[in-house]
């Protein structure tokens, strides 16, 4: 059996992976900046008869009561590892954030030592989608979608 082509294939694959790691932006850098909450939806539900996957304002408030995050318009991820929740341009809370796993877990450390984990479904230059489990009313996975606020626009807003 000729082993040369096999070794070459795997060496190339490894080199390609290393190149991707060096060339592509990691989720940790992509997430930096200001993000505006645009939608809350149920991703999955274990209630077959529930037709609507959209989460209305009342449901949202009910869910928020049972998790630590505050209802905020804007999430600001700072490079120093702090996350600020802003509402009407005022900081409501500051906490620590970090990304774990292969870049798929967003961990938020609150000041009272409580840690919350969100699954990062997607993080691109324009969009951030995170999920968390909710056990309220109906058990399901809640999907939060954010849109990036361009730096200029945010400065103008302030």
């Amino acid at each position: 059996m000729r082993l040369g082509p096999i070794y070459l294939f795997f060496a190339l694959l490894l080199a390609l992976s290393v190149w991707f790691l060096l060339d592509q932006e990691s989720p940790e850098t992509l997430i930096l900046g200001d993000w505006e909450e645009i939608a809350w939806k149920y991703e999955k539900l274990d209630h077959g008869d529930v037709m609507d996957f959209d989460i209305d304002r009342l449901q949202k408030q009910e869910i928020i009561k049972n998790i630590i995050i505050h209802e905020a318009e804007t999430w600001r991820f700072n490079p120093d590892g702090t996350l600020s929740f802003l509402e009407e341009n005022e900081i409501k809370e500051n906490l620590k954030w970090n990304i774990k796993g292969r870049g798929h877990i967003l961990e938020l450390h609150h000041k009272n030592n409580i840690v919350e984990d969100y699954q990062v479904v997607q993080v691109t230059k324009d969009e951030l989608v995170v999920q968390f489990n909710s056990d309220l009313q109906v058990r399901g996975i809640v999907k939060m979608t954010f849109k990036r606020i361009p730096k200029k626009q945010y400065a103008q807003k302030i």
């Binding site: 390609l16 992976s17 790691l21 990691s26 292969r102 870049g103």
Partner: peptide, 23 residues
């Protein structure tokens, strides 16, 4: 399985991380 999923989603960075881990 995750590697396949990340490739399908076009998440090249995450895919590369998983591939290096497997290696």
């Amino acid at each position: 399985a995750i590697l396949a999923q990340e490739i399908a989603k076009g998440n090249w960075y995450q895919g590369a991380v998983v591939l290096v881990w497997i290696f």
